[in-house]
């Protein structure tokens, strides 16, 4: 089973079980980003997650957005760049940039 298949499979199982679910997908990268385009992370309403969209650098921020979208927000595109001292927990230490599409599973 591929990585994506595993993430999609878990997301579908959560949703079938009645949980709120959002799916995040890397849609573009610049420079040395940790995960390639197409990488996926699924999040459920209890905050459980499977898969990844970075090396763990931005997952926290993506989960926050995912939880908001699950509560009825619109799908959105997040962009993360190189980390600075103020925002180190939501930046990419590697110096790359990524865009991530986050959508709710209805």
């Amino acid at each position: 089973m591929s990585d994506s298949e595993q993430v999609l499979s878990e997301a579908a199982a959560w949703r079938r079980g009645g949980l709120g679910v959002a799916l995040a997908t890397v849609v573009s990268t610049w420079g040395s980003s940790p995960r390639p385009v197409g990488s996926k992370l699924a999040v459920n309403e209890t905050g459980q997650m499977i898969g990844s969209v970075s090396g763990g650098c931005v997952e926290g921020a993506v989960v926050q957005t995912a939880l908001e979208i699950m509560r009825g927000g619109n799908s959105s595109v997040l962009e993360f760049g190189v980390s600075d001292e103020q925002a180190w927990e939501v930046g990419l230490a590697c110096g790359g940039r990524i865009r991530i599409y986050v959508e709710r599973i209805l």
Partner: peptide, 24 residues
């Protein structure tokens, strides 16, 4: 994405053949 569409995506992925998902 609707759950029914996700299930179709999953079926396509499980079929082991090539494909594409296009998202606006």
């Amino acid at each position: 994405m609707k759950l029914a569409f996700l299930e179709q995506l999953l079926d396509a992925s499980r079929s082991r053949s090539a494909g594409a998902l296009v998202t606006d």
